[in-house]
């Protein structure tokens, strides 16, 4: 474990709790893409299946349980408890367009042809694009509430910090994971446009408006 990865995980947990707290406190899923949350749930279920078979550390197990339960809880709040506030008309990104390519990529790029390795590769590729429905929804609604912007900033920062972690591990341990690194770079690039808007708008106290 290194500081970059720890900060990345903290940023990730922060994002998950910002979103959960926002929906719970405002009792509304307005502006939130339920489809992205479904994709994140699939990502965590596919990646953390080894939870019951291999013990890495208490930290690892606790975090996996936390991400799986928080993403399931978020999907539940959006599609069940606060379903009336879910903005389905603007949450229209076809998730098949990210599910199928991720599955294909997993069959091409994996570290071994075992079910767990295929599921892991699939989850890595899917996570890279899982935010697309949310970013698509922000462009469709033309804006994002401040709290949603903070959620996206924390979520985007998590994988950006992981890139620093991979650089650090490469130079200190010679650790290199090409699948995770390539997908992580793509994932972070997808947030760049948002990062720019966040820094120039939200941090100046203005609302995040995606210029129509």
């Amino acid at each position: 474990m290194n500081l970059f990865r720890l900060m990345g995980d903290v940023s990730h947990v922060l994002a998950v709790f910002i979103l959960l707290a926002k929906i719970w406190r405002t009792r509304s899923a307005a502006g939130i893409s339920g489809r992205s949350q479904i994709l994140f749930t699939i990502v965590y279920l596919a990646r953390y299946m080894d939870l019951f078979f291999s013990f890495i550390s208490l930290y690892n197990t606790v975090m996996k349980l936390l991400f799986i339960s928080a993403s399931c809880a978020t999907v539940y709040l959006i599609y069940f408890k606060f379903r009336a506030t879910y903005d389905g008309n603007h949450d229209t990104f076809r998730i098949e367009f990210v599910l199928v390519p991720s599955l294909l990529l997993a069959f091409i790029f994996h570290y071994s042809m075992s079910f767990f390795e295929l599921a892991w590769s699939f989850s890595i590729f899917l996570e890279a694009v899982a935010i697309l429905p949310q970013l698509f929804m922000v462009t469709k609604t033309g804006e994002a509430e401040n709290i949603t912007s903070h959620y996206l900033f924390a979520l985007g920062s998590y994988r950006a910090l992981y890139i620093l972690n991979w650089i650090y591990r490469y130079y200190t341990e010679g650790h290199f994971d090409p699948i995770a690194v390539c997908a992580g770079i793509v994932q972070t690039i997808l947030y760049c446009d948002f990062f720019y808007l966040y820094v120039t708008k939200v941090l100046q106290g203005r609302k995040l408006q995606v210029l129509p």
Binding site: R5, D9, H12, D50, S54, I56, S57, N60, M63, K64, F67, Y111, S112, S114, E117, W120, Y162, N165, H175, D177, I179, A180
Partner: peptide
């Protein structure tokens, strides 16, 4: 490959 090495990252 990495499958031998333990996947210790989230």
């Amino acid at each position: 490959g990495l499958s031998k090495k333990v996947k210790d990252e989230l």
